[in-house]
Design a protein around this nucleic acid. Structure first.
Lengths: 341, 341
DNA sequence: GCACCGAGGTTTTACGTATAACGTCGAGCG
DNA sequence: CGCTCGACGTTATACGTAAAACCTCGGTGC
């Protein structure tokens, strides 16, 4: 417990303190800690400096180093909400790559929106080198815009691009795979349960679904709901008990919506998948926790974050990152089955 | 789109550039941006400075400000994994409070462990003012220890405390409420499905459960499993099909484990809750997504993070934070029922 | 008429580090 | 012996900001 602590509190020791105690100049201390002392400092001296530093509990002052070097090795990740497992996984991937390159990741503060009174960047932007932004967090984009920092977008609308590099998920293809799977099972009456936010991703999914059904005799109706189990259940319950022919396939934009839809079905006395096929998106933990397990489009969330951070690091390095689109994969489980006759 | 951009790239303008362009001294610019210019700078001048700054696209250099002020308005949050919804919610609460006080939050890098080769603090600790650490992330604690930074613990073992302020969740009471609920339903044969990591929180839960059953004729057996749905299902399946009398109540340390346990029961042809009562912990999204909805102990995750950050800010402010324990609440849903005779 | 004052600035310095530029000194060599 | 050279350090400076200390000047009280 006694360890290498110094005499209680006092201000943190600086490189100058270490230098004085070790009988060398401040520059030498800096060299030793800079990992760039090959041939500049004798091993004996370096070891003495390190020992002294340890004794004094010295840690280089990051703020000073950042100022001196003009870079901070910190990137900002902008996502709507970490409580959504998808974005937590994006963060995980991004943070891993960042860490491997000695970078830290800061999150856009207060994802569920603190009052718009303050400019959130003013306070919580620890000095940054660059920004990795999910386009879903649309409200934050305006703030980012004014910024002259290097920017990489995650899944941005190619049309409305800011000229920034982008990493995409092939959401449209996921929707296509889903539709073809359901068509092959004989489904013709689709209900599309979409997330409440209206963004361009809604259009991508809707268009892909419509495209896939074109040329068939299948029809689709769309309902929107906020991204919670309860709201999805309510919306699905209403839609499924509406007059007219009941859909046999329920395509959801998210596993959370799908889970809610399954609950709605059960309340209405419908069996999944016998009476109603349900599909999701993301392949969250949720997808295999519910019964039946969800047929869903697996999105490579970690990889998404990794690629995004890799691209950002490339930009910071002066290189031009390739703009690529990550493939997605339909995972067929127990929530889909042949359409009832 | 043309907005207040300057001539393309070039190095970012500094306060000196703004000063020169506005015909004032650098100090004046600093005063204007310091929000502390009441009576020091005439309104006319201040407005002129602001206009010039806007025109040049000036943003104060955070690294320099941090160095000068000796504080960074940044706190580190140490949690095991953000993909666990509980910790994502802790983050959300902490980030909200931090944001309200102009603080940013950095996360301990690469929660699922990058190679131990590098000291993770070296690189990704953006210059910090303090640390908020969940004691669950035990491997990180050693690293933190050497640090002279202000520290607040989340749910720390009171015994092994580092003398740091602590915010606690009353996990033991949650377990007690669970046990009493099940006892009242007539259950006498308990199985305790615990998370795989062995930390002091395991002891807290085990002890509380044992304590609650003391004086009754009930018995409990314990099984451990890693914190995933699949592992929990496997472990529960094995335990439930073991020889001897089958437990009627399955107490899980986490909703994820409980979800896995429910799947195990279904595989074995047991109905939940008629044949087997199952309880969880945390009250995650999962808890109401599965069927039947889980009886579980709701932990105030956001509040937990908020209180922790509030305490940390108090410490940074030189005040002594009160060490309190947050109450938890058993939420009774559909996964528990009277014991079968 | 003069000391005083407050408003509205400016000059100067310090924060802790990294590194370019500059000694110093003993060894090697023609 | 004088000269160069590499190894090992040191001195000096800059990064961009905040703020203490210091000027200047017109108005005021006596």
């Amino acid at each position: 417990m006694a360890g290498p602590q110094q005499e209680a509190a006092g201000p943190r020791p600086t490189s100058r303190d270490v230098a004085r105690a070790a009988g060398v100049s401040q520059a030498t201390v800096s060299l030793v800690f800079g990992e760039k002392w090959r041939g500049r400092v004798a091993e004996r001296t370096a070891e003495r400096v390190r020992a002294t530093a340890r004794e004094l509990g010295y840690r280089p002052n990051l703020a000073a180093r950042n100022l001196r070097l003009g870079r901070t090795r910190t990137a900002l990740l902008v996502v709507p909400a970490l409580t959504n497992e998808f974005f937590a996984r994006v963060y995980t991937g991004a943070a891993r790559v960042a860490g491997e390159h000695g970078f830290g990741v800061v999150l856009y503060p207060s994802p569920d929106g603190l009052g718009p009174a303050r400019d959130p960047f003013d306070s919580s932007r620890a000095a940054l080198d660059g920004i990795l932004a999910s386009s879903i967090a649309s409200d934050a984009l305006a703030t980012i815009q004014g910024d002259a920092l290097p920017l990489v977008m995650l899944d941005s609308d190619p049309a409305g691009s800011l000229g920034a590099a982008t990493v995409n998920l092939d959401i449209g293809d996921g929707m296509r795979q889903t539709a073809e799977h359901l068509l092959a099972l004989g489904h013709r009456d689709f209900l599309h349960l979409a997330a409440g936010v209206d963004s361009w991703t809604f259009d991508v999914r809707s268009d892909a679904l419509a495209q896939a059904l074109r040329g068939t005799d299948a029809a689709v109706r769309t309902v929107r709901a906020p991204l919670t189990v309860d709201d999805a259940r309510t919306a699905a319950e209403a839609a499924l008990s509406a007059p007219g022919p009941r859909p046999t396939a329920l395509v959801c934009d998210d596993d959370i919506l799908a889970a809610g839809a399954c609950k709605a079905a059960r309340r209405l006395g419908l069996r999944v998948p016998e009476d109603l096929s349900v599909t999701g998106f993301d392949d969250l933990t949720l997808a295999t926790a519910v019964e039946p397990e969800l047929t869903t489009v697996r999105l490579p969330a970690e990889l998404f974050g990794e690629r995004g951070m890799t691209s950002l690091l490339a930009v910071l390095d002066g290189r031009t990152p390739r703009t690529d689109t990550l493939p997605v994969e339909l995972v067929i489980r127990g929530s889909t089955a042949p359409a009832a006759r």
